[in-house]
């Protein structure tokens, strides 16, 4: 039966077909397929690794951001405090300057008042002196008309001088 006894022609053709098939597939197909499969597997592995790294980076970045935020908040607080202090200082300084200014103005005013006062006094004294001179003149004119009166006055003045000493 031909099923059990190998037929030479069929063996020949089968060998030819199989070897050609093997030759073509071994040269152009299987290495490419195996390489592509490996490459894709590598690619996927890399992708997973990359994703893991990215996740790690993101977590780190989040932590960094949090740190940064607290730092910033701290600095803000500090700056605020500083400004507060500065403000207070500035106000104090301004007040002090104003006080000084006021003091100076007051002093200057006092001085001028004093001066005016003195001048006024001087003038008054001059006037008083001249007035009293005039009065004295008039009185003298009237009273020193008689010797008696002159004598009395001289005595009075002398008494006064004595009393003073």
């Amino acid at each position: 039966m031909s099923l059990f006894t190998p037929e030479f022609g069929l063996v020949f053709w089968m060998l030819v077909v199989f070897l050609i098939l093997f030759g073509i597939l071994a040269k152009y197909a299987w290495p490419a397929i195996v390489r592509m499969m490996d490459e894709r597997a590598d690619f996927i592995d890399k992708g997973v690794e990359y994703a893991r790294e990215a996740k790690r980076d993101r977590e780190k970045a989040q932590e960094d951001a949090k740190d940064l935020l607290t730092e910033a908040r701290k600095q803000q607080l500090e700056v605020l405090q500083q400004t507060e202090r500065l403000k207070r200082e500035m106000i104090a300084e301004a007040r002090k300057a104003a006080e000084n200014e006021a003091k100076q103005v007051r002093e200057a005013a006092n001085l001028s008042i004093e001066q005016a006062k003195r001048e006024a006094e001087l003038q008054l004294r001059k006037q008083v002196a001249s007035l009293s001179l005039q009065v004295a003149e008039k009185v003298m004119r009237k009273d020193l008309a008689t010797d008696k009166n002159q004598m009395e006055l001289i005595g009075k003045l002398l008494n006064e001088l004595e009393n003073k000493e």
Partner: peptide
């Protein structure tokens, strides 16, 4: 006898189809 019999022809068809399938993947 080197005749291309039914089986030899079938082997060729199978070879071609195998090639077709594998190269479609490539």
């Amino acid at each position: 006898d080197f005749s291309i019999t039914k089986n030899a022809f079938s082997v060729m068809i199978s070879g071609l189809i195998t090639m077709l399938i594998v190269f479609s993947l490539v």
